[in-house]
Design a protein around this nucleic acid. Structure first.
Length: 498
RNA sequence: GGGGGUGUAACUCAGCGGUAGAGUAUCUGCCUUUUAAGCAGAGAGUCGACGGUUCAAAUCCGUCCACCCUCACCA
């Protein structure tokens, strides 16, 4: 056997003792009669009737005093004290009780009562082990001080919390709450879109070509077909095929994978909701974005405001809609609306903005926007009319061949969504993708690739369509007040431990 | 990738050239209404890893690893 430290060895010894007593430490069956929350909800009734109740859960506290002992049992719904007295459970069962450790799963049969100290508890008739824990759970004790819970020990090491999320969830209620809120947000996204007659679809994660965003992919290999496949970087191109196929409103909630840098707002796999609506444009997408986020705010939080570390964010409609060029002008006084490449380059040089290889004026405008404007956009803002150069899937803005009908949503200085009036002209789309392919040759590893299958689909005809993508992780961060994406993803990507 | 920080017992941390510490947890004893239970005692560590300096290194130096912050990059 491996070299076990003292704490692990002691638990294995207890496991052995249970087996010697012919107690199964991992029985197949349990028989819970109530969730702990139910007992609290009908406290008086349970105390008065003294009815038999059976709870199950993890042993999360233990105060033994010789022939009597108190413990805490926690299940998903709550926590309650158990009172175990040798005279009540019998000598044999008390031996079992004495072999229990914090972290063990147990079943307690008994009846509810109020202790001398006034605590609602279960007086045990029998304690059954449901699952022996062989590792010590980090201990977190708390005490109520003026109605506030004061914690005395913590499980707070960030790295451990991410690597052993199960312990984090067990020991840090705030972390658990983040994920409950995440689930509610996703549920409300679904409810909202279902109520608007969108149908939920599933499209390939493994794709022979990737597209729909500007990013490097993960590559994998299918053995039987003997071809390389890519993990999707966006949902876009398959959803458009579905619009070609006659669906008028589709959405998908799922993961995208981008083989790029990681920081506190980027995880290599992240969740998006994308939706496509035929006979709609980017103005409709702005409306739906406002409505959807407002719906979440109201349903999950009952408020039209978010307080993010003291910054009050007002979600009340309508949100500001301003063009990228106007925002740049407001912030810097620089007017780039003539797309004069030389003039814009001079501005970039003056402000030490690096000029990427193969960049045209549109790319530089986007860089300028990123440098000067993004972080200033605290209240929800639709930044509209992106340069065509950086928007190969968006339809040109009527009257200005340099711009597209595209927006990104910014809140609190971060990007939350991206949407276009989708390009449905197959010949224009081909030209744009071919231009992207040229950029690839010039060294832009993130440029789109020409997807002939997608182009062919467009040639059969796609109605005018609006499309929208919203980053779910970031939305959850916004609503839960988290500044790291790792706090809202159960198992964020980490380097393997050596 | 640059800069800064952190890494010591199961957890949270102190120690920062001279025998590895505390609280909680664990174990033993006492305790039949405790709740951060209490009292008495005990055990528990590759001080992130590897090198170097030194009579002596958790401590100083170097390299590496992981994590955090920050800047850059990144649709």
């Amino acid at each position: 056997m491996e070299n076990l430290n003292q704490l692990l060895a002691i638990r294995r010894q207890k496991l052995q003792k249970l087996k010697e007593l012919e107690i199964d430490p991992y029985p197949n069956r349990s028989k819970r009669s109530h969730k702990i929350k139910n007992l609290w909800e009908n406290k008086d009734k349970f105390v008065e009737s003294e009815q038999k109740t059976v709870i199950t859960g993890r042993l999360t506290g233990m105060r033994r005093q010789g022939k009597v002992g108190f413990g805490n049992i926690s299940d998903e719904s709550g926590r309650i004290q158990i009172f175990v007295r040798k005279d009540n459970v019998g000598e044999d069962n008390y031996e079992v009780f004495k072999l229990l450790d914090l972290g063990d799963f147990v079943q307690v049969e008994g009846n509810c009562f109020i202790t001398k100290m006034g605590e609602y508890s279960i007086r045990a008739k029998e304690v059954t082990i449901l699952g022996k824990s062989l590792r010590p759970l980090p201990t977190v004790k708390e005490k109520e001080v003026d109605g506030k819970k004061q914690r005395f020990d913590e499980f707070s090491d960030i790295e451990l919390r991410y690597r052993k999320r199960y312990l984090d969830l067990l020991l840090n209620p705030e972390s658990r709450d983040n994920f409950i809120i995440r689930a509610r947000i996703i549920r409300e996204i679904r409810n909202f879109l279902n109520s608007r007659d969108f149908i939920e679809v599933e499209t390939p994660i493994l794709q022979p070509l990737y597209g729909g965003a500007h990013a490097r992919p993960f590559t994998t290999h299918h053995n039987t077909l003997d071809i390389d496949l890519y993990l999707r970087i966006a949902l876009e191109l398959y959803h458009k095929r579905l619009i070609v196929g006659g669906f008028e409103r589709v959405f998908e909630i799922g993961k995208n994978f981008r083989n790029e840098g990681m920081d506190r707002t980027h995880n290599p796999e992240f969740s998006m909701v994308e939706l496509y609506q035929a006979y709609a444009d980017y103005n409709d997408m702005m409306d739906i974005t406002e409505d959807m986020i407002l719906h979440i705010a109201k349903e999950v939080f009952g408020s039209e405001k978010i307080n993010f570390h003291g910054t009050e964010i007002l979600l009340k409609k309508p949100w500001q809609r301003t063009s990228m060029l106007d925002l740049i002008k407001e912030e810097t006084g620089f007017d780039a609306s003539d797309f004069d490449f030389e003039k814009i380059k001079v501005f970039c040089d003056e402000h030490k903005i690096e000029i990427p290889p193969a960049a045209g004026p549109g790319k530089l405008i986007e860089e300028i926007f990123g440098r000067f404007v993004e972080s200033k956009l605290i209240q929800p803002t639709f930044v509209i009319d992106f340069p065509k150069e950086v928007s190969p899937l968006a339809k040109e803005k009527p009257g200005n061949p340099e711009l597209t009908e595209r927006f990104e949503l910014f809140i609190n200085g971060n990007e939350y969504g991206n949407a276009f009036t989708e390009l449905n002209d197959p010949l224009d789309q081909r030209e744009r993708l071919e231009a992207q392919a040229k950029l690839r040759e010039l060294g832009d590893a993130e440029a789109n690739v020409v997807d002939e299958d997608f182009l062919e689909a467009l040639e059969y005809g796609m109605p005018p369509t609006g499309g929208l993508g919203i980053g779910i992780d970031r939305l959850v961060m916004l609503f839960t007040g988290n500044t790291s994406i790792k706090e809202v993803i159960f198992f964020p990507q980490m380097k393997p431990e050596m």
